[in-house]
Simulated assay, not measured.
Amino acid sequence: MSTQTPTVRGDAYLIVDDHALIREGIVRVFSDTRPQARLFEACNLQQAIQTLQGEHGPSIDTVLLDLNLPDSRGLETLQRIKAVAPDIVVGVVSGTDDDHLAMQCLQQGAAAFVPKHGELDQFVQGISAMACGGIYFPRELLWQVTGRLSAADAPPMVPGVASVRLTQRQGEVLRLLLKGLSNQVISNELGISPETVKLHVSALLRAHKVSSRVHLILACASPHAA
């Protein structure tokens, strides 16, 4: 557990998992991708809540959360964290890659869903995306979402909103955004400035009538958007 003095919110993460090896693995990813980040650890929900409500709580802006802890299981774990800190960013680090559970977590306010199992590269990519300010979801969920946007011959349109059309560049930004990439990575991929990416993202949110990237993914993945 970090013993640094409390500071204002920013670039501080709480890792909540009852398996020490998982916590150690997440710490290693951060050491490679975001070494300046301040990390705190908890092995159960009670300890996590105590940390969020304690002297270091105001400095923590992101929680990496295992849903199944010794003192709480399933979506209730996420709900209790959000009840204590409703404005905090929560990334679920799950023992399953269940798409349905991922969507439930999104609906309960999670900003990312990173499966523990499967390929190591996938786990590292998920944690790295969270560390760099991006979002991350299982490949199957992303295929479900982006599959609805992959009609190469059709003019780019907002899924489910037939009266709104996208420019070619907005369509490119949307596809990369739905892969969980941060504005900086999208900027690098498309060869445009981060400020331009930000303008495109804002336009996409307005077109979908949503207020965040998470809500945009939900809008694109909803059955009536097909």
Rank of each mutant, 00 (worst) to 15 (best):
D66E: 15
D66W: 03
L67F: 08
L67R: 00
L67H: 02
N68A: 05
L69R: 03
P70K: 03
D71Y: 13
D71G: 06
S72R: 01
S72K: 00
R73E: 08
G74P: 11
G74D: 10
G74I: 14
L75H: 01
E76M: 09
T77I: 10
Q79L: 09
R80M: 10
R80W: 02
R80Q: 15
I81V: 15
K82S: 04
K82Y: 06
A83V: 00
A83H: 12
A83K: 12
A83D: 11
A85S: 15
A85T: 06
A85Q: 13
P86A: 07
P86S: 04
P86L: 01
D87V: 00
I88M: 10
V89N: 02
V89T: 11
G91I: 07
G91E: 02
G91T: 03
V92A: 03
G95T: 01
G95I: 00
D97S: 13
A102C: 14
A102P: 02
M103F: 06
M103S: 01
Q104P: 02
C105H: 10
L106R: 12
Q107C: 05
Q107H: 06
G109L: 12
A110I: 10
A110P: 02
A110N: 08
A110Q: 11
A110R: 07
A111V: 03
A112D: 12
A112K: 03
A112M: 12
F113M: 09
V114M: 05
V114N: 07
P115T: 14
P115K: 07
P115R: 04
P115A: 09
K116S: 05
H117N: 14
G118M: 10
G118N: 06
L120I: 12
L120S: 11
L120F: 08
D121M: 11
D121H: 11
Q122W: 05
F123S: 03
F123T: 11
F123W: 02
V124P: 00
G126F: 06
S128D: 13
S128A: 15
A129N: 05
A129D: 01
M130Q: 14
M130C: 13
A131L: 06
A131K: 03
A131F: 07
C132R: 14
G134W: 02
F137S: 07
P138T: 08
R139M: 10
R139Y: 13
E140W: 02
E140K: 12
L141S: 08
L141T: 11
L141E: 04
L141V: 11
L142D: 08
L142N: 12
W143E: 15
V145E: 02
V145R: 05
V145K: 01
T146V: 13
R148L: 09
S150R: 15
A151C: 14
A151W: 12
A151Q: 14
A152Q: 13
D153Y: 12
A154G: 05
A154P: 03
P155Q: 07
P156Q: 13
P156I: 10
M157K: 14
P159M: 09
P159S: 08
G160T: 00
G160C: 02
A162P: 14
A162S: 15
S163Q: 05
V164A: 13
R165M: 10
R165P: 06
L166H: 03
T167F: 04
T167S: 15
Q168R: 08
G171V: 09
G171M: 10
G171H: 14
E172W: 12
V173H: 11
V173F: 10
V173Q: 11
R175Q: 13
R175S: 10
R175Y: 08
R175N: 09
L176F: 06
L177T: 08
